[in-house]
Design a protein around this nucleic acid. Structure first.
Ligand SMILES: [Zn+2]
Length: 512
DNA sequence: ACTGCCGGGTG
DNA sequence: CACCCGGCAGT
């Protein structure tokens, strides 16, 4: 299902929702690392805002995690319909004509019906999964959730305000409590430990909110990771990973960055399969224990990758109990980085690009236009700020077929991550969110599963050769300056438009 | 603010 | 499918 998008757009810079410890948080794709040999999927380095969850455009100097395309929700990546939202995941929905934020109370996997509780009111509503967004719409700079009823009454409220954060009750339950804490953890409230803050809002939240505040964890969903549930303990894992990854500057690594950003390096990661496996870097970390990873791995920036986001992890294996398994399986591939040339990186849909990402089914191709790209499904993401969310994360690494997962590099060094041990500290004092992690998933079934939930039985197996990650390759679609029927004929004379234009579909008369 | 059109829904 | 339309992305 991928559709090919026709234009090209680069994923770099786009805002997506990425799974961090079971919840989806807004982040911006800062770089793309792709395997050189074309094989497996590319990794997208997503930068989160400091307070995880508050996305402020300029402020995305928080942690950076790598994800495979199929772990991300957003334009050019997976549609929200592929997300399995965890309880307490923050979502945005247009309710009574206004965009409001809400948290997920339940997500029925069978029919994708979500039970949500609107943040500002304690009212619950039922909506379909596709009706919600993980990111606020760009227009509403801030959500309007308010406690106030005035809204209700009037319908309108000043546009301003900052986003209030809703505080929801924080507790989420784990689905499987017993299993490793890691997994389970995600849904759990790990966040409670962090602060709470929210000053401004007085509105009461639903009754049982916990007194502790939690920041709002809003988005969560779980993708399916393969069976393996091991999620690392939050941050630590992540941190480790990051640390592993090469430093940005190291010659070896380059990452595609967004143009505006300061980074200049582009990296590509090449994964290579290595015979040895298991032995590789290991992290040990129990949930509690700080993660330690072998240094070697870390030290070479060049080769190692830290994160493993795997996509399909090996589901085949039952969840390995050990906490540290991340690497284990994954280690088979070692990423190698190489430089990308400039052009390469902001490439358009050339075949090459495609191939790299994987080819795949193209979903819809427009006739005249360029086809090329892989699928993209549009989903929602808008560049905007997001109000808040946070929670913790866990990391899982699984690898995609084989195991590779991502390498994380934080590309530029913004933020300071503290190292291991605990969480990464946000720069801003205000909210925090502590950890993060990425989890991943595989994808075969309906949802991308993010960490914690348990997977379902039919996990996917690895797709071997395929690249898991591929999927939409975001080629950037540049909006050509085309004049299509609408513009040419005007709204009046709509009759003159080609039918596609009338349907708001891609114009067939004026192909670009 | 406006254009283009994806992704979904409906009949 | 034809037909619509919410919503997002790029200008
Ligand atoms: Zn047309």
């Amino acid at each position: 299902m991928t559709s090919s998008t026709r234009g090209k757009w680069s994923a770099v810079g786009s805002i997506v929702s990425a799974p961090v410890r079971g919840y989806y948080y807004p982040g911006r794709v800062k770089a793309i690392k792709r395997p050189i040999d074309g094989s497996s999927g590319a990794l997208y380095s997503v930068v989160f805002s400091d307070p995880l969850g508050s996305l402020d455009e300029a402020d995305d100097h928080g942690l950076i995690l790598d994800f495979t395309a199929d772990q991300l929700i957003g334009r050019g990546f997976e549609p929200i319909s592929r997300a399995l939202l965890s309880e307490n995941q923050k979502v945005f929905i247009t309710h009574r004509g206004r965009e409001v934020s809400a948290r997920v109370v339940s997500h029925n996997e069978d029919d994708d019906v979500l039970r949500l509780i609107i943040a500002s009111e304690s009212q619950q509503i039922t909506v379909k999964l596709h009706e919600v967004r993980l990111l606020p719409s760009r227009k509403s700079g801030r959500l309007q959730e308010h406690p106030d009823y005035s809204v209700l009454a009037n319908g309108r409220r000043s546009p301003d305000e900052e986003a209030t954060k809703t505080k929801l009750s924080g507790r989420r339950r784990t689905t499987s409590s017993s299993s490793n804490s890691l997994l389970a953890a995600e849904p759990m409230a790990s966040h409670s430990q962090f602060q709470t803050k929210d000053h401004h809002q007085q509105h009461s939240t639903p009754s049982h909110i916990v007194s502790e505040h939690i920041d709002v964890p809003t988005q969560q969903s779980r993708k399916r990771r393969t069976s393996n549930p091991d999620v690392m303990d939050e941050c630590t894992a992540a941190l480790v990973l990051m640390s592993l990854s090469a430093s940005p500057r190291s010659p070896t690594c380059f990452t595609e960055q967004m143009p505006g950003e300061e980074e200049f390096y582009y990296t590509e990661v090449v994964l290579r399969k290595q015979p040895s496996q298991t032995t590789g870097p290991t992290l040990s970390s129990g949930p509690d224990s700080p993660v330690s990873l072998s240094e070697d791995a870390a030290s070479n920036s060049s080769s190692t990758s830290a994160v493993m986001t795997g996509d399909n992890s090996m589901d085949s294996n039952p969840p390995s109990p050990e906490s540290s398994n991340f690497f284990k399986s994954n280690s088979a591939f070692v990423p190698v980085y190489r430089h990308l040339e400039d052009h390469e990186y902001n490439r358009r849909p050339d075949p090459a690009g495609i191939s790299i990402l994987g080819s795949n089914s193209v979903r819809r191709n427009r006739k005249g236009t360029n086809t090329s790209v892989l699928s993209s499904s549009g989903a929602s993401s808008h560049p905007i700020n997001i109000p808040n969310m946070d929670n913790d994360s866990q990391i899982t690494m699984s690898s995609s077929f084989g195991g590779f997962s991502g390498a994380s590099s934080f590309s530029s060094g913004f933020g300071s991550y503290n190292s291991f041990g605990s969480s990464f500290t946000p720069l801003s004092p205000t909210r925090n969110s502590g950890s993060f992690s990425s989890s991943l998933s595989s994808g075969s079934n309906k949802y991308l599963r993010i960490g914690a939930g348990r997977g379902n039985p039919g996990t996917t197996i690895l797709q071997t050769g395929g690249n898991p990650a591929n999927r939409t390759s975001p080629t950037k679609r540049v909006r050509g300056e085309s004049r299509k029927c609408r513009k040419v004929y005007g709204m009046d004379k709509k009759d003159a438009w080609c039918t596609q234009c009338k349907w708001k579909k891609a114009c067939t008369r004026f192909l670009d």
